[in-house]
């Protein structure tokens, strides 16, 4: 696995418990540099100033949801190629297609295990 375990990741979710869970799982996989934001707006400003390598965001959030966040990330020249993993509870086809359209790199259905998350991330960062 050629995953860069030192890459800087930002976890976006409005539920702090969920952020902790995801951070915990990332830690289990071996990632060391993990930051968080409680909604899309906070994430946008953090992403704008910080050199993040990877975004893991919840879909359904108040203020700014995951898709909106993704669109804004893609719309900004400096972050338009930033890898983005969407976390969601819905597995409907139209949702997947919407995410594809918005330019998501991959997506994962919760709850998930460390193995699943690792697989999903590996898909985004092929060897």
């Amino acid at each position: 696995m050629a995953l860069d375990l030192s890459m800087k990741i930002i976890v976006v979710d409005d539920f702090s418990t969920m952020r902790r869970i995801i951070k915990n799982i990332l830690k289990q996989i071996g990632f060391t540099n993990v930051d968080e934001a409680e909604n899309g707006q906070v994430a946008i400003s953090k992403i704008a100033d910080g050199n993040y390598d990877f975004v893991i965001s919840d879909w359904n959030m108040p203020e700014m949801n995951g898709i909106e966040l993704l669109k804004r990330v893609r719309a900004n020249e400096s972050t338009k190629d930033l890898p983005f993993l969407m976390v969601t509870a819905e597995a409907k086809k139209e949702n997947v297609l919407e995410a594809v359209k918005a330019g998501v790199n991959n997506y994962i259905v919760k709850p998930f295990t460390a193995e699943t998350l690792q697989e999903k991330i590996s898909k985004i960062f092929p060897d």
């Binding site: 190629d81 594809v100 991959n106 960062f125 092929p126």
Partner: peptide, 24 residues
């Protein structure tokens, strides 16, 4: 996800370092 990974790259994804969901 549990199957063999990484088939040959499609033409569309050649110049990308990372893949997106569409490619996957």
């Amino acid at each position: 996800a549990h199957e063999e990974k990484h088939k040959e790259n499609h033409a569309k994804t050649d110049k990308r370092k990372v893949k997106n969901l569409g490619d996957i």
